[in-house]
Design a protein around this nucleic acid. Structure first.
Length: 613
DNA sequence: AAAAAAT
């Protein structure tokens, strides 16, 4: 099915200068165990003696451990137990060990009860349970790298621990999705990972399960240093939009429920004080957008020196021109442990070669994983392209919406997501739709965070079943019941198109994607036609003519990705290996998602390879 | 040229 990608990433080198200069001054000299004896270690912060034993906020309730082996670390202050240190100490998979938690004043909310409160029960209340596992059956999976750990077939194949297993049951996950089958053992084995996988394929769980499990098993978990007003997360998950961070946080809280592992989210546009308070109460997994995290780091309210796990969601976006300097600052210029010391996992549905090259800086001896699209054999998303002049777009959209109503395809749980190019365009289209009797709302980066979150809720709940959005909503958001994605304005980059239409046809369900195409989109004709063809979609003759006319230098399909996958390991490229060692890349395996390699015989690999090259 | 991300 579809080929995702383009050669169009011609990004300028990242600036990134002038950062992190004033951070070091405020550091102290404590050396955590995992970076001791390192050749070029950063000046690690000490716990000032005057603070030793002070009431520190970064504590965890109901968790044992003597802070042995840590100089300069005073006795723990278990605020909720009136000073009893060294509690518990039970097995890491003992769900009862945080009984104390519930006795404290910060009772952990049950994330499984107040889900989607404004959605009718039975439809939206378990958005993660509607996964159509049959659609996963024959998904092709490709791995490359040295000594790739084999996939598992069930969650029970890996001992994630009782608490985590219980949450897996609560989520009603029966068996792991392909990305989970491969990612979890790779991650448990401690390997770095670059994974191409569609969001909505269980990606968040794929990196959360090993992180939570690893944290529970680690000694750092119990032996945390205390510095006042400074949080020391063990895992960091970065995402490119606030709403995506919120979503990841909500999911991660389910997975971490009653494990004692604390998940905190930090993003811009919201009061920082609440986030600071959450951080002070203790954080193991920090989910954040880059800007706010940099702010927290500069205020010295967060230290990354204890990070054992780093996950970048939508990693190709995180490393594009707009984000790369911030990401480099966070990952390379603060106090985060180096690659090889920490474990790094990068995820995206698309992974252009140029971005892979940048990403390699953050990784150590990593495994590359490409999971074919859910429904790659059944074409769950029907893609249509219509020729519509700029001036006709509104009336054409109106026709589509009327047709949906006529077909009975409308209502609370048939949502339509309309992508436009600009924030102004989003505002005016929303207004026009409302004036014309279509309940619509809009989301874009010029709205307040409150407005953005309200718009998303209103859309998800079906109060306004039409959402007009800029690319802020293009990636990662898991919105059940999006039946139709309209590309009112097409993006310039085919990868963005792929992410946008991925908002429908989620979790193995079918969906429709309609694009309005005209002369302004000429540069997209070729990649769009190619992509549709490989997705077995009907390509209009006029689009093929546009494609034939277009220049082939840019946006030509090629090295960045291809075939049934969202990407291909760039280490396999001849150009990459030409100058250097050849041992870096360790071989490829192509398998079906389940069972052995039936269905995609030998010819498959070579075909795809030639298409990629 | 636009979008996102800190205040």
């Amino acid at each position: 099915m579809p080929i995702y990608g383009s050669d169009s990433y011609e990004k300028a080198p990242a600036g990134g200068g002038g950062m992190g200069a004033n951070y070091r001054g405020s550091r102290s000299s404590y050396v955590p165990p995992h970076i001791r004896n390192r050749p070029q270690s950063v000046d690690p912060p000490a716990v000032p003696n005057s603070y030793a034993g002070a009431a520190l906020g970064n504590d965890r309730q109901g968790y044992g451990a003597t802070g042995g082996g840590f100089h300069n670390v005073g006795p723990r202050n278990d605020r909720n137990f009136g000073g009893g240190g060294g509690r518990g100490g039970g097995g890491w998979n003992n769900t009862n060990r945080n009984n104390g938690w519930d006795r404290g004043r910060e009772r952990e909310a049950n994330p499984f009860q107040d889900d989607d409160v404004d959605v009718e029960p039975g439809i939206g209340s378990h958005e993660n349970t509607g996964i159509n596992f049959d659609a996963y059956e024959d998904i092709p999976v490709e791995t490359s790298g040295k000594n790739v750990p084999p996939p598992v077939n069930t969650f029970a194949d890996i001992d994630l621990g009782d608490a985590l297993n219980l949450n897996i049951k609560r989520c009603k996950y029966v068996k792991p999705t392909p990305v989970q089958r491969y990612t979890i053992p790779i991650s448990i084995a401690g390997r770095d990972l670059m994974a191409c996988a569609q969001t909505g394929s269980g990606k968040t769980a794929a990196f959360c399960f090993p992180i939570i499990s690893g944290i529970l098993k680690s000694s750092e978990y119990a032996q945390r240093q205390r510095v006042p007003r400074m949080a020391f997360p063990l895992a960091l998950i970065l995402s490119p939009t606030r709403e995506l961070s919120i979503q990841i946080h909500e999911e991660a809280k389910k997975f971490a429920y009653q494990t004692g592992v604390r998940v905190v989210v930090a993003y811009g546009g919201a009061p920082i004080n609440l986030q600071l308070r959450d951080l002070e109460r203790g954080v193991d997994i920090l989910v954040a957008t880059p800007g706010r995290l940099v702010d927290l780091l500069e205020r010295a309210r967060v230290s990354l020196q204890m990070i054992k796990y780093l996950a970048l969601d939508e990693a190709d976006r995180m490393l594009d021109m707009g984000f790369e300097p911030q990401i480099r600052k966070i990952v390379e210029q603060m106090d985060m442990p180096r690659p090889g010391v920490r474990q790094t996992m990068l995820f995206s549905a698309t992974f252009p070669k140029e971005i892979q090259r940048l990403a390699a800086d953050f990784l150590s001896d990593y495994v590359f994983l490409a999971v074919g699209r859910v429904g790659s054999s059944t074409d769950l998303i029907v893609q249509r392209v219509e020729y519509v002049l700029e001036t006709d777009k509104r009336s054409h959209l109106m026709d589509l919406l009327h047709a949906q109503i006529a077909n009975g395809v409308h209502g609370k749980h048939t949502l339509t997501l309309v992508f436009v190019e600009t924030k102004k365009g989003a505002d005016s289209l929303e207004h026009w739709l409302c004036v014309n009797g279509f309940p619509a709302t809009a989301i874009h980066g010029d709205r307040t965070q409150q407005e953005r979150e309200y718009a998303l809720r209103s859309f998800k709940s079906g109060i306004t079943p039409i959402l007009v959005a800029t690319d802020v909503a293009a990636r990662g958001l898991d919105i059940p019941h999006v039946a139709h994605v309209v590309n009112f304005d097409l993006p310039n980059d085919i990868d963005d198109y792929v992410h946008r239409i991925g908002r429908t046809g989620r979790a193995g369900k079918s969906g429709l994607a309609t694009a309005f195409f005209n002369e302004n989109n000429s540069s997209l004709a070729r990649p769009l036609a190619d992509l549709m063809q490989e997705a077995n979609q009907e390509v209009p003759a006029w689009l093929s003519r546009f494609a034939a006319r277009s220049f082939h230098g840019k946006n030509r399909r090629g090295g960045s990705s291809g075939g049934k996958f969202g990407g291909r390991d760039f280490r396999r490229d001849a150009s990459f290996n030409r100058g250097g060692g050849t041992d870096f890349y360790g071989g490829v395996q192509i398998n079906n998602g389940y069972g052995s390699s039936g269905g995609y015989g030998g010819g498959y690999g070579s075909n795809v390879t030639s298409a990629w090259d």
